[in-house]
Amino acid sequence: MIIDHPLLGPRDASEFIYLGDASLLNRPNWDEENSEDNFYKYLYLRENVAGMHKELWFHQQGDRSWLVISRNTITHEIFKVELATEFKKNMEKFND
């Protein structure tokens, strides 16, 4: 696999470490009433997507960027690669 890093260009997948579903970016608040339940859902419940999937990869043998990659889990086609920091900022903008 080749991952088109937004800062470094195309890099071999062996330089990266995979973490999983990008929903890990949405960490719940700790001080809400049902925070324990929210954290349980956040940590353990995942969609098992056949198709487009947003997921987190870390450029371990590179610039240490966390990336959000939009990948088709059936064809492995990669449609978008974003810095997690940028993705998160846009996400928050969207939520506001």
């Binding site: 470490i17 973490l19 890990l24 960490r27 987190l56 960027s65 810095l83 997690a84 998160k88």
Partner: peptide, 13 residues
């Protein structure tokens, strides 16, 4: 180290 980068970049950028 990877975890701290995750905390910083993905949770509290």
């Amino acid at each position: 180290y990877r975890h701290l980068e995750f905390c910083h970049q993905c949770l509290w950028p």
